[in-house]
């Protein structure tokens, strides 16, 4: 089979589409959850509308982060100048895998950040005096949920920039093997971040909710949130390790 540069272009355009297409799904849902809860919160507590509106906007901006990562990766895939024929099948597989990784990888974290922000708005409506503490906790929780999106971004950038060109004269078996390993790395970290992202978002949301109900218990709530989020993050780290092995050790 004669390799031509079109194969790399096919892979990078397909990857760019998958990346921002799938990546936009829950970014939209997450921001929508925050806006919905924000509107409901202002209805219940119109006096606190300034604090609620501010929390809603900041929470939505934080929930968009993973979508912006996906946008950046798809721009790089389209205009990054990776389509050189020397790259071979390795480059084609790496570009498709980079899109898959960041696209699927932004599903969980944005959903989690959305839930966390929504609960924060609800909580401020219940206890407007504690709005600063609740907003701080919301941002910490959203940052924890976004860590797994950052893992996906790191793997995408490694796939874009540190996969070498296909060496000349290697067997077809070796080419298929390495290409599938690169695709596998994208799937591993992509799907692997959905669970931890959504799970940590749920923890942070419940913590925000309870901070509005029982403001005195803030240290205990935050301690439990950190501990639970750290345990929940572990599977994302396993996925990251497997993705690194598939990229560098195969």
């Amino acid at each position: 089979m004669v390799f031509s540069v079109e194969y790399i272009q096919i892979a990078s355009y397909l990857g760019a589409g998958i990346c921002v297409g799938i990546g936009a799904v829950t970014t939209g849902i997450g921001s929508g959850i925050i806006a919905g809860e924000g509107a409901l919160a202002i209805m219940k507590q119109p006096k606190a509308n300034e604090q609620i509106f501010r929390t809603m906007l900041i929470g939505q901006a934080a929930a968009q982060t993973a979508g912006i990562f996906a946008l950046v990766v798809s721009m790089l895939l389209m205009y990054g100048g990776f389509d050189v024929v020397e790259g071979g099948w390795f480059r084609a597989a790496a570009l498709l895998a980079a899109g898959i990784s960041m696209g699927i990888g932004s599903l969980g974290p944005s959903l989690g950040a959305g839930y966390s922000g929504g609960q924060a708005c609800k909580s401020i409506a219940r206890m407007p005096k504690e709005s600063n503490a609740i907003m701080g906790n919301m941002l910490i929780g959203q940052a924890l949920a976004q860590t797994s999106a950052i893992f996906a971004l790191v793997v995408s950038l490694l796939l874009l920039y540190s996969v070498p060109n296909q060496p000349a004269g290697i067997s077809i078996g070796r080419i298929i093997l390495k290409s599938m390993a690169l695709l596998g790395a994208g799937f591993s970290i992509g799907f692997g971040t959905i669970g931890p992202g959504a799970g940590i978002g749920f923890v942070a949301g419940k913590a925000n909710d309870m901070m509005g109900r029982f403001p005195k218990e803030k240290p205990k709530i935050m301690r439990t949130m950190f501990l639970g989020a750290a345990v929940s993050e572990s599977t994302a780290i396993y996925s990251l390790v497997v993705a690194f092995l598939l990229i560098f050790a195969v």
Partner: peptide, 16 residues
């Protein structure tokens, strides 16, 4: 890759 990716879904959500 698929195994570790999909396998991490459940525990992450559940632990959270």
């Amino acid at each position: 890759g698929l195994c570790m990716g999909m396998g991490a879904l459940g525990p992450g959500v559940g632990e959270g």
